[in-house]
Design a protein around this nucleic acid. Sequence first.
DNA 1: GTCGTTCGTTGCAGACCACAACCAAATGGT
DNA 2: ACCATTTGGTTGTGGTCTGCAACGAACGAC
Lengths: 163, 163
Amino acid sequence: MSISPDTRDRLTASIAQLIRTGRQISTRAASQLYGELPSYGWTLLLPLEQDGDQRCSALAARAGIDVSVASRQLAVLERSGYVERHPDPRDGRATLLRLTPQGAEALAATRAMRADWALAALSGWSEHDARRLTDLLDRLRADIEVAVPAAPSAAREPLGAGR
Amino acid sequence: MSISPDTRDRLTASIAQLIRTGRQISTRAASQLYGELPSYGWTLLLPLEQDGDQRCSALAARAGIDVSVASRQLAVLERSGYVERHPDPRDGRATLLRLTPQGAEALAATRAMRADWALAALSGWSEHDARRLTDLLDRLRADIEVAVPAAPSAAREPLGAGR
DNA sequence: GTCGTTCGTTGCAGACCACAACCAAATGGT
DNA sequence: ACCATTTGGTTGTGGTCTGCAACGAACGAC
């Protein structure tokens, strides 16, 4: 109703292309983006750093992946020494993941590496444009998530109710 | 040097999140996005519609995937009747892919379906914002592509992290 | 104590991807 | 014309990421 068909098509095409490009650099320049972390390390470790210890299901919901996937990936991260498992004192079924010093260090190293890369990619950008793009991007993602028909049940539940 | 570290971090995070969201809806709402086409159908068929008959390697390059992947996916599209193979009159090794009427029809149906979906997702957007986002997105993608170091050197590093 | 529910792990299958090996055709030097 | 090299495309193989289903263990309600 608000935007023209042409703009709409171009926008969806641009999004698709960006997603494709993102997937490419994920596989091609993994070392530039993730450092010594496995490719999914960033997505799972960052919530631990920001919000402290969490359980597997919470991380899975945050990352938007199935619990089984998170379980496997966290097992790798644990073997690499980036996270530790601690039993949840309130729930014997759950285990709380904790970021280890090595994990925090790897996260920082990856952050620095990614910053260098982004610095080069965004060298021609103004603060104004970058911030505007970020805002529009976040808004777009939020709108997309609500518009997806069978939206992620876990993410749409008020409080990580799993399924 | 132009943008602040905070904005840079937020922008990279937003991009990563959008890519993740895109992957999700690709698997979860595939019927809404691709219709009766396989998920890669859109990416491969669209260049055929826009620029006419092309060879496999050209489509692969356009899509940013390996030729072997394109070959397999085109085989599926051919079995589904969306593309035809014609020998290249100028090069006996190559085969030109041609969009069939069924392929064009499927493409149009997918386009309409995607338009409906995008219409809902972008219902709250103004023409101005949508167009600005598209421009920024394209510019970003172009900058990212040149910033990615093509990765042959970094990927062969012995110390490279496991992926 | 029993029953239904939830947490996390594991088995399984599918989609996508790239590299390497390979065949067929074109190209170029002699 | 001949043969070596290059190029276009297919197939074999292996790897990653993903979700679903089944499972045991622990929780909560009764």
